[in-house]
């Protein structure tokens, strides 16, 4: 476990999470959530559980991003609030 790398990854997680909550463009929010999943997969691998990281990369960054974009194709792209 490398402490500076861990701190950097967790800092990235917080920044990406806040950005995904505040951004008005929903497509950008979905892409940010994909980036969040990818950084989270790196954190899992960093914590010596590569199978969980593998699942996170496959499901979080791959499949669920595609599902959310497919759902967005039926909605409005810009958040109203």
């Amino acid at each position: 476990m490398i402490i500076p790398l861990d701190l950097a990854l967790l800092f990235f997680l917080v920044v990406i999470g806040i950005a995904a909550l505040t951004v008005k463009d929903l497509l950008a929010a979905i892409v940010l959530l994909g980036a969040y999943s990818f950084v989270m997969a790196t954190v899992w691998v960093q914590m010596h559980s590569p199978d969980v990281g593998f699942t996170e990369a496959a499901v979080g960054a791959g499949a669920s991003t595609a599902l959310m974009i497919a759902a967005l194709s039926r909605l409005e792209r810009w958040s109203s609030d």
Binding site: D51, F54, T55, A58, V59, G62, A63, A66
Partner: peptide
């Protein structure tokens, strides 16, 4: 054991790529 779910998701991702 292990890998059935992840392999299925990767296979589904290839089908999703084909559909997009």
């Amino acid at each position: 054991a292990g890998g059935g779910f992840q392999g299925g998701v990767i296979f589904a991702a290839s089908l999703i790529l084909l559909a997009t």
